[in-house]
Design a protein around this nucleic acid. Sequence first.
RNA 1: GGGCCUCUAGCUCAGUUGGCUAGAGCGCCGCCCUGAUAAGGCGGAGGUGGCUGGUUCGAGUCCAGCGGGGCCCA
Length: 936
Amino acid sequence: MVKRNDYRDTLNLPRTEFPMRANLGEMEPRIQRFWEDIRLYETVKEHAHGRPQYILHDGPPFSNGDIHLGQALNKILKDVVVKYKTMRGFDAPFVPGWDNHGLPTEIAAIRAFDIDRHAIDPMELRARSAETARRYIDVQRDQFRRLGVRGDWEHPYLTMDREYEASVLEAFQEFVARKCVYRGLKPVHWCPECETALADAELEYKEASSLSVYLRFPVVSLPERALAGVPVVGPVSFAVWTTTPWTLPANVAVAVHPKLEYVLVRAGEEHLVMARGLLEETMKELGIADCEVVSATPGSTLEGGKLKHPFVDREVPVVLAEYVSLEQGTGCVHTAPGHGREDFDTGQKYDLPTLQPLDPRGIFTEEAGKFTGLSHTDADPQIVEELERQGMLMKAGELRHQYPHCWRCDSPVVFRATKQWFVDLEPFTADALEAVDSVTWVPPWGLPRIRGMMEERPDWCISRQRAWGIPIPVLYCEDCGHELLAPEVVGQAIELVRENGADAWFKAAVADLVPDGTVCKQCGSKRFHRGEDIFDVWFESGSSHAAVLKTRRGLRWPSDLYLEGHDQYRGWFQLSLWNGLISQGGAPYRTVLTTGFVLDENGRKMSKRLGNAIDPQEVVRDLGAEILRLWVSYVDFKEDMPTGEDIFHQVVDGYRRLRNTLRFMLANLYDFDPARDAVPREDMGEPDRWVLHRLAGLADRVTQAYESFEFHQVYHRTHEFCAVELSQIYLDLLKDRLYTYPPTSQARRSAQTALWVLTTTLAKLVAPILSHTAEEVWQHLPEWEGKEQTIQLCAWPEADEWRDRELGERWERDIVPYFQDADLAVEHLREHGAVRQPLEAELALYCPEEVWQRLVEALGEDELAAASGVSKVTYGGEVDAAPPDAYVAQGDRALRIAGRRSEAAKCERCWRRQESVGEDSDHPGLCARCVEYVTR
RNA sequence: GGGCCUCUAGCUCAGUUGGCUAGAGCGCCGCCCUGAUAAGGCGGAGGUGGCUGGUUCGAGUCCAGCGGGGCCCA
């Protein structure tokens, strides 16, 4: 035993300080401190100075809470892109940003400070909101940094910075100059809880329960050509269906489709009018069996008919509308211009009044008569009762359907006609579509998707009735109330805001907001008051391209890349594009890359309510940022991404394989200095050249994967390479050479040369993703002349020089399959109990002599045994000479392998069984080869 | 209800322009090693390719419909 230990000391066993267990919770912060110490962001920036730029423009998250998994994913992906591009030789700055204004933060502030928002002074609320925003900027900044995201964290862009605010107003000024901004009374989505208008992008559609009510609109008169000459006994009514009875007080018409056929139906004692296509379904719903069609007529003939409102003393006309459909209801559509977009259009066409009996809180005003003072939700059942009392109710049921809810407070929204500021986008649509076509959309289906959205987009409501935001710089005439929207007013506001921030608009004396000589265009008055509305936050974030890219040194407009979740086709991508087009004349990005959504392990959406949301901070704490980073490279982020404990555990396993492979190689480089010891390529052994040839292939595929944003390919290819090419094949056959050969022998140095190339190349290939681990590897590599201070300053690895197609093809054809056969032959022996472990075995190959020759030439007889995992491999002869129980190679390979237990003694040093063991009297336990090495 | 996306072994992914017995890694089971050791090696068991039709000599790969999931919208 003593002797054996002596020989152990003559081996070159792996050594390294690189720990097997990562202990990421400790290692990552240490690496991050190192990056801070060397001022990594600035260092990289200086390094990249003068190179071609690659600008990824960050979409700003709301500064209203901890970051969630989707945001962690998003920033990591951006980090991967930026780091990759940097290594590829670009100057790729990353300026992170935050969206500070708007409801998300205002609500966070109201909650945090327990504010009664009706009692608080708006300026105070603004101050509190700003405070909340600042707090969460700090929180999120720390959280993003903890993920290892490299960026200009000391100088992020904030939408509440004065400069930024001024830029938003400058964009607005362009809009005004292009004359596309107007004020109008229109039904908009309105949140009664938040008491503000909402943009399309601020709605969430969710399953909700509504009433489903069938009611009567009694006929007062119908045009002659409709139902002419039909003898009718008893009352006649239009059958109408609605899910929002509370909108009935605002009803001013019933719409029918001009081209659909309508029927007069006798139903028991009365007669009803409805679309023929919905007759059967409606009768079933109403439970009426006793009915017959009396006559039929096209909808167009009904136009001009007069109906009686079911409970208000009001006569309402029958009108025509193309949007009436046979999907649901009766084909006779209740029309309230104050409560629906289409209804409003119809109202305009027929010059109907826009009744709007709902106040900002969703409470009925006096206009609603007997329902005054009720909230619209409370009114629903009372209106049904009223219908019942009036004998106008036919059926009241329930319906579950998708209904829009406020994105912030989760309440169901209503349509409410109010005076708001709009942008008319129609004049720009053609240009916008052209701009969209010139952008690269990844994945490609993004193009038709955003096109479809932009083609059908209604006017953009940009005003909000809240405190926390940038004011819309408009004035209203004190005398006649007419609005004054003028470039000079905006211009003056820009200077004011640039100097003092957006608060200044609200604080300044009105006189300071009114340019000299301004008079009301309607009444000539010179007295004005300021507008209190603020901008839709999407107008703010949609201006970021100009506010950031055009004002910061080192950036450029347009950007190369926007990278966000695919919900942003509707949001940031689209609104940035309109904004860019109108204010700058083009799209603010060249490529748009979208990600899927994070789902739970069952493929369900994550939500706080379902309790299946994963907190990235928890993942970082329990598993490490590297695991989160590797996860974004484990799944295909362009699709929806399932997540969960199981999946993270698999990522952890994958991480271990990568880490240990790197560690093993590192551990065999402890005495290697590439400048001194590297073996020239032509002197390297075939296995070493083969593995580097394979590495070149890997580098190609990985590079291609980065270029096409297929980061999951980076992980899967690299992982497979580590597991198969390295662990199973190359590193296994290398051990004998690395451990037992003389340290400075060319054979060992050749192996180390390969290991050095492999380690440095692999570390660089994964550096954009596994930034901490790659850095850790880098720091553990021996020093050499010209070694970069950090791996993040390294150039992208070039492995082309190692490509050797002839050798590669020969190995794939002749050599690699043999390894599998050798393994199976040994397994064959083990199954029969001849040996327990491979080194107890020796193999005899039966094959055409040229096959044998190829193996020997590729590997050498010595390494052939090592590569086979056994003590000895010999040539037995032609295939037909093989013993009957020999293993038969797979496929049609002309190879049989006879294995047997070696009779030779085990060399104490190299553990191979060799006949030569015992020949040397000084070292009776060693084989001849080991004797030679030991005594050399 | 509409538009778009998606559905390959328990899990994450590969599968050129339709063509041999559908692959990999992980996980799982069995064995080996103890000189990568809270590692490593070998072997094995796992797939009616969401479902149903169709085009074709032949479809995971093309077409239609249905279903599950997701995003967006009404």
